[in-house]
Design a protein around this nucleic acid. Structure first.
Length: 448
RNA sequence: GGCCACGUGGCGGAGUGGUUACGCAGCGGUCUGCAAAACCGUUUACCCCGGUUCAAUUCCGGGCGUGGCCUCCA
C-alpha cells in the first residue's frame, strides 16, 4: 500500500517513505497547559491519531514513534497561575491530566512520548549555544535572538518573502533586534517568573522562547531530522517556520521534517469560534452532551485540510451514522480495516471517502470488514451504546404495563378492531414508547 | 495594508478536463389492516466574470465572499 501525504512545504501530495526504513517518526505540536482544551484543539489530536493508527497498521505497531509535546512554560501559564493563586506546576499538571482525560474520551491513543518543555531546558540551551556559535543567533540585552537574515530559506514553508513580511508588519519592533523579523530564543525572567540559568554567558536567569522547545524535544526524541511534523494551520507561521530555521541551522541539515502537515481551522455554526460570540466550547463541555465517538466521527467527516464547520446538526448526523455502523457491524471483526477504507486513508487521509466506504459495507457481505474498520478507527461500540441508552428518558410506564397494553392491542388487531389497536399504539407513542410489528411479534423501543 | 487558503445540490461532504460520489433530509415504491422499521428507486450542484480547450465544476486570470497568518492563539 502506497501512502500519499500532502506536504505544506512543497504544496503537493507525495509518496511517503520513512527516512529511516526501520522506523517512522512523527512530531505534533501539543497543548499549552493553562486551561481546558477547546473543540478546535481536538481537531489535530484526532486527525493525527488517525494518521498514527494508519502508520502503525502500515509499518507495524512498534515501528512508529509519535511525539506530542506539552508546553508547560509560557506567559499565559504564568498569568493564569497568578490569577488563580496556585503554583505553576500545580496548574500545568492539573491541566495536563484534564487534557489526557479529554483526549482518551475522544478515542485517541496515547502518543509514544509526551515530553514536557521544562524537562528539556538543557537541550534548548545546547541548541541556543550552537546557533550562536554558527552565527545564526546573537545576544542582546540578556535576550538571545535568532537572526532571520542568516537563514536564506526562511519563509519557504509559509511562502512569504522577508520583504513582504516587513512591509506588512503591524507590530512595534523591539529596539534590541538587529532585524525586525528576528525572534526570541531565550529571554530574561522577571522576579516571580520561572527561570533557569541562562546560556551564552548571560548572568540573569531566563526562560526559553516558545519556538525553541519544539526543536529541542523533536531532536531529543526523534533526531535531527524526522518524517512528519504536524499541527494546526495557524502554527505554520511563525511557529513552524521558526522551528525549521532553528533546527536546520543548528544541525546544518537541508530539512527538519520530510513532511509538514497542517489541519484546517474550525468554525462553530458558520462563525469564528470566540468567547465574545459565546460559541466557544471546551472539549469537556462538548463531551457533556455528546459521546466521544460521536465527536470523533463528526471531526473526521471533513477532510483534515479543509475548514470544518462544527455544528449540532453535524453531531446529530454523526450519531445517526455511528448507530447505523454499529447496527450493521458483526461481533466477529476482521483484525484489519477494509481495503477500500485503507485506500481512501492512504490518499492523504481522505476520511470522508473512508466513511463513505464504511457506508458501503453496511450489508451482509461487509459486516466483518465494517467491524474491523470501526475498531481500526478507535470507535467503541460499548461506550457509544451505553451513552445512547442513557440519553433516552426512562419509559413513563412500567415494562409489564407496556406488555399488557401490547397484548390488549394484539387482541384488538386479531378482532380486526383496528381503531382500538391504533388508539393503544398512539397512546403508547405519546408516552414515548414506539411499537414495531414484525412477523415474530411486536417489539417496542423508546422514542429518541 | 501584506501574504496564504477555501467557496460543490435543502444540509453535510468527496472527487474529476468529457462518464454514479457518499451520508442526512425530501419524494416514490415494496412490505404492513394502517404505521414504524427495513429494503429498493429517485429530484435539485459545482460563487460571479473573462481566458485556454473540441469540451471546465475541474486549468489560468480578475472580482466577490468567508477564514487563517502577519500579535498570545490549534
Amino acid at each position: 500500500m502506497e501512502l500519499k501525504l500532502y506536504d505544506t512545504l512543497t504544496r503537493e501530495k507525495r509518496m511517503f517513505a520513512p527516512l529511516d526504513p526501520s522506523r517512522v517518526r512523527m512530531y505534533v505540536c501539543g497543548p499549552t497547559v493553562y486551561d481546558f482544551a477547546h473543540i478546535g484543539n481536538a481537531r489535530p489530536v484526532i486527525v493525527f491519531d488517525v494518521l498514527f493508527r494508519l502508520l502503525r497498521h502500515l509499518y507495524g505497531v512498534d515501528k512508529v514513534t509519535y511525539v506530542r509535546n506539552i508546553t508547560d512554560v509560557d506567559d499565559k501559564i504564568n498569568a493564569r497561575a497568578a490569577e488563580r493563586g496556585v503554583a505553576i506546576r500545580e496548574l500545568t499538571e492539573e491541566t495536563y491530566r484534564n487534557f489526557v482525560e479529554d483526549v482518551a474520551a475522544l478515542g485517541c491513543l496515547a502518543p509514544t512520548v509526551e515530553p514536557r518543555a521544562t524537562e528539556h531546558i538543557s537541550e534548548m540551551k545546547t541548541l541556543i549555544e550552537r546557533l550562536i556559535a554558527s552565527g545564526n543567533a546573537y545576544v542582546a540585552e540578556e535576550h538571545v535572538l535568532f537572526s532571520v537574515p542568516s537563514m536564506p530559506e526562511y519563509g519557504r514553508l509559509s511562502k512569504r518573502s522577508l520583504d513582504e513580511m516587513v512591509a506588512g508588519a503591524r507590530v512595534d519592533v523591539a529596539p534590541y533586534k538587529r532585524d525586525p523579523m528576528d525572534f526570541v530564543l531565550w529571554k530574561p525572567s522577571k522576579t516571580g517568573e520561572p527561570g533557569w540559568p541562562s546560556p551564552a554567558g548571560i548572568a540573569a536567569p531566563g526562560r526559553p522562547g516558545w519556538h525553541i522547545e519544539c526543536s529541542a524535544m523533536s531532536w531529543k526524541h526523534l533526531g535531527e531530522t524526522f518524517d512528519i511534523h504536524g499541527g494546526g494551520i495557524d502554527l505554520e507561521f511563525p511557529h513552524h517556520e521558526n522551528e525549521i530555521a532553528q533546527s536546520r541551522c543548528a544541525f546544518h541539515t537541508p530539512l527538519m521534517a520530510n513532511f509538514w502537515m497542517h489541519n484546517g481551522f474550525l468554525q462553530v455554526e458558520g462563525e469564528k469560534m470566540s468567547k465574545s460570540l459565546g460559541n466557544f466550547f471546551t472539549i469537556r463541555e462538548v463531551l457533556a452532551d455528546w459521546q466521544g465517538d460521536v465527536i470523533r466521527l463528526a471531526m473526521l467527516s471533513s477532510h483534515y485540510r479543509q475548514p470544518i464547520n462544527w455544528t449540532v446538526k453535524g453531531l446529530e448526523e454523526a450519531e445517526k451514522a455511528l448507530a447505523n455502523f454499529f447496527d450493521a457491524a458483526s461481533a466477529d471483526a476482521e483484525p484489519r480495516p477494509a481495503p477500500g477504507v485503507l485506500e481512501a486513508l492512504a490518499d492523504d487521509l481522505n476520511t470522508p471517502k473512508a466513511i463513505s466506504e464504511m457506508h458501503a459495507l453496511r450489508n451482509a457481505a461487509g459486516r466483518k470488514a465494517l467491524a474491523g474498520t470501526l475498531a481500526f478507527f478507535g470507535f467503541r461500540q460499548g461506550a457509544f451504546a451505553q451513552w445512547r441508552d442513557a440519553s433516552v428518558p426512562a419509559p413513563a410506564l412500567p415494562v409489564d404495563e407496556i406488555d399488557r397494553r401490547i397484548a390488549a392491542r394484539l387482541s384488538a388487531r386479531q378482532a380486526r378492531n383496528f381503531a382500538e389497536a391504533d388508539r393503544i399504539r398512539d397512546e403508547l407513542a405519546a408516552l414515548g414508547v414506539v411499537l414495531k410489528d414484525s412477523k415474530d411479534g411486536t417489539t417496542w423501543e423508546l422514542a429518541r
